[in-house]
Design a protein around this nucleic acid. Structure first.
Lengths: 244, 244
DNA sequence: ACACAAACGAGAGCACCGCTCTTGCTATGC
DNA sequence: GCATAGCAAGAGCGGTGCTCTCGTTTGTGT
């Protein structure tokens, strides 16, 4: 069913990809607000109206780029997660640094997905699965650590307990509510650190940003109960969890 | 020297203010990218070219709005700081909640200053003093607490020590480097929390956002060594610091 | 008091934008 | 073999930021 319909369908796929590629080029070069359908069409040797056969509007093209950006970030984070040591703390650091690295490599795409949303535009639900990948990764690290050596977040004030329990039930019923709550906060705070660096807020404030970031996300990890050199890592070479 | 030059100068000030007011209205209604010089001029009953007598370009108008936004946020944070209890921990919470409140009240202006910068546009140094106000406020709280009951941040890894000492020398030589480092991180993380809420990343994740935020910034405070109910607050009615 | 220069508002115009509609052409499916 | 659906192209609409020119108004120095 995929390539069944011959030349026409294949051409459509190719043209669609070419449009997205050129759009991504312009996005990377000048940012989202300067992405112009007409310029994309011009560069591709077509007339602007022809482009509307493939994307019904500029916003739809942007949405496609947003999903691609989330996936690109997600893949990089997942790759970092897999090639890191099994120690949850180190994996946490690796994932966070992958996020930062991707953001520095693709500033305009990062701005597109984590900066101010394009005005008057709200991302459709299509983006949700791609957008969730990094969050799920962090959640998975916490889960591994919890099932390994146990995890204890900071004490939960009684006024937040219902909300924390609700979040835990939604996101990770096998984790303590205080860990889930701390995790969500750390998730947001991670993007605060990345955003401030990327958008120039650290200008003349933080210079050695890589080291600063590494330390800050390490503290973030501690906030959810992760500590360096936990049980799993003490057993060298082992991929299998001792406990459980 | 200010109003000395009579009617013309006064008219200029009034027109400039009217332009900014109308621009702010459009900004609040539709966001920065949809702010149109022509629409502002139209609403003011002038022709678009006349507007260039007051702002040399759209970016310059945006810059003026950015500075105003920073100042508006700064004023609100400072007001919250002053009307809060003297206990540094409570002051910290109050300032953070003021930032969140302002952001929720002025989402597009928040996006303008802390979201992705307008593409191809970098804020001039004119904005720096206004932009620094909230940061300085948080710094002041930490300083008060430190001079009161002392403050101890988390241990600093040796690789970050030079950078932390440099930051401390620049920002607050009277504070321990680990506190300054934690403070800068908390500052960025605060905006991560606000941004995620404002830009919809907490959609279907965090529901009771006010309580969640309050707890999260409380944890942020602990990260720089602030704890609830510290020394100054234990002595009732006292504005004078006991130690030092 | 008068002249000169600076500031100003209005208008026309340039190049660009997103998007729509119509017009022919061509490949696909019955 | 032919109707149909997908396609590229062009013209055009209303909008944008910005520039330039043109009279007019206003403030100032002599």
């Amino acid at each position: 069913m995929s390539t069944a319909h011959g030349a026409r369908a294949r051409a459509r796929i190719e043209v669609t990809a070419a449009i997205k590629d050129e759009a991504r080029r312009q996005l990377a070069a000048q940012g989202a607000a300067r992405l112009s359908l007409r310029a994309v069409a011009r560069e591709l040797g077509m007339v602007s109206s022809a482009l509307y056969r493939y994307f019904p509007s500029r916003d739809d093209l942007l949405t496609a780029l947003i999903i691609d950006a989330y996936d690109s970030l997600g893949e990089r984070a997942e790759a970092a997660h897999e090639s890191a040591a099994t120690d949850p703390f180190r994996r946490w650091i690796a994932v966070c640094e992958a996020v930062r690295g991707w953001a520095l490599d693709h500033p305009h795409e990062y701005a597109l997905i984590y900066g101010s949303p394009v005005p008057g535009y709200t991302a459709p639900d299509t983006t949700v699965p791609s957008a969730a990948r990094v969050g799920l990764l962090l959640l998975g690290i916490a889960r591994d650590a919890h099932h390994g050596s146990g995890l204890a977040g900071p004490a939960l004030p009684s006024e937040l307990r219902p909300e924390a329990e609700r979040m835990a039930a939604d996101l990770a019923p096998d984790l303590p509510p205080e860990v889930v709550s701390a995790l969500v906060a750390a998730w947001a705070q991670l993007y605060g650190l990345v955003g401030f660096e990327l958008f120039g807020q650290f200008h003349r404030v933080v210079e050695d940003r890589a080291r600063f970031f590494r330390h800050a996300v390490g503290q973030l990890a501690r906030g959810v109960g992760l500590v360096p050199g936990s049980a799993e890592d003490a057993a060298p070479g082992g991929g299998v969890l001792p406990g459980e």
